[in-house]
Design a protein around this nucleic acid. Structure first.
Lengths: 213, 213
DNA sequence: TAGATTGTTAATCGATTAACAATC
DNA sequence: TAGATTGTTAATCGATTAACAATC
């Protein structure tokens, strides 16, 4: 049922996790079928948009019936690649790095945390949830040996480009970046940014704008 | 020089922090003027887009010259409301809450962390960076007394809607939401989401897609 | 003044919504 | 079969890019 897969726009891709999340909730509630109209009402999207989005990947519905909730959830999990394992490491074992290490969402997305790295000798050696913090000089070797393909950068912004360079050199293929910079990496390396500072500034804007009116 | 301020699209607003960040870097480097062309080259945007974006807020440039870097940075800080103070509290003092409490980006955006709240009696009473963790039952009183206007939700998803309800009831006007849910709040309450799980799933998709090709 | 670069209008592109024939 | 709802095409809307007159 899968389509020949032309390039999908990022607008569509960024909605997929939301579809997945709501479908998972529906499955838990025991809902077995849903129409695009009803699903749109729940999500705050138009029915049209949902049908267009899903049809980028295949015809998952049935005329006159709607969509099978469990089936659609599994299709989307498959599209997102949530069933594929990705071994990851965290670089920067400070507050944020430790919080991310404790993040329970890894499992559900197929990511497995294998190690953490830091330059601070006071952190090296201790463990967070059975994950060892190692010296950053051991990183390249570990990546190659353990076939790590994702690096999670939780360092301050001064160090982040340097870390990215070392990750790329060691053969990593994707970066989840929490440092407030745009990393410079080769075109085949994927970077997904979580820009806390930008999010906070947008919040400041929205508060400021509302107060102005 | 400010325009009558019609409604600005979110696409524009979400680019402003990036402008601000790069302009700050340019100021630090001692660059005093920049053209939209050169600024676009640095950011990876078209010159046209930068000029369009800035002209939503006013004519900050000068024909034949370009933009004064420091002036433009200050204008954008002003548009974003980074000079206005917003008193905030964190709800949920677990790993993520504590990491956010330690987040150094608050100051630069005009946010001031005033307290943290949790239901866990083992956390209540201790302090993170001089910020006391209090029992959640003290929250409503604290919000009113200290005139808090921003709540930062770092609880697990089960508790987040309940926390949001209590925040709204206590009179809070904006929420920075780290829990993986879409909060239901009255229309005048601003919610800015940081969806770690969605970001991670997009990363999974991009890795999976690249491997497929 | 001549050159450069803005502010702004017009053209293009892409994303969203509407409409409807196909079909379960 | 009749009703419902999809998949898909067409229309609309909004955002981005190009073009250029205004002007420093």
């Amino acid at each position: 049922m899968e389509k020949p897969q032309t390039s999908i726009s990022m607008s569509v891709i960024r909605r997929l996790p939301k579809y997945y999340r709501y479908l998972s909730e529906l499955v838990e509630k025991g809902v077995t079928r849903i129409s695009s109209k009803e699903f749109g009402r729940i999500l705050g999207f138009t029915a049209s948009q949902i049908r267009q989005d899903l049809n980028c990947f295949g015809g998952f519905g049935q005329q006159g019936y709607g969509y099978n909730v469990k089936e659609l959830r599994d299709e989307i999990a498959n599209i997102l690649g949530l069933n594929k394992n990705n071994d990851a490491i965290i670089i920067g074992a400070g507050n944020l790095g430790q919080a991310i290490a404790n993040y329970s969402g890894f499992r559900g997305s197929g990511f497995l945390l294998k190690a953490m790295f830091d330059i601070n000798p006071r952190l090296v050696g201790i463990s967070i949830r059975d994950i060892k913090i190692m010296d950053i000089d051991e990183m390249a070797g570990f990546i190659e040996e353990a076939k790590i393909n994702v690096g999670i950068i939780c360092t301050p912004k001064e160090g982040s480009q340097g870390v990215a360079d070392r990750l790329v050199k060691a053969g990593i293929k994707a970066i989840w970046n929490f440092s407030p910079t745009d990393l410079n990496v080769p075109g085949d390396v994927i970077v997904e940014n979580v820009q806390l500072s930008e999010s906070l500034m947008v919040l400041a804007y929205l508060i400021n704008e509302r107060d102005r009116i």
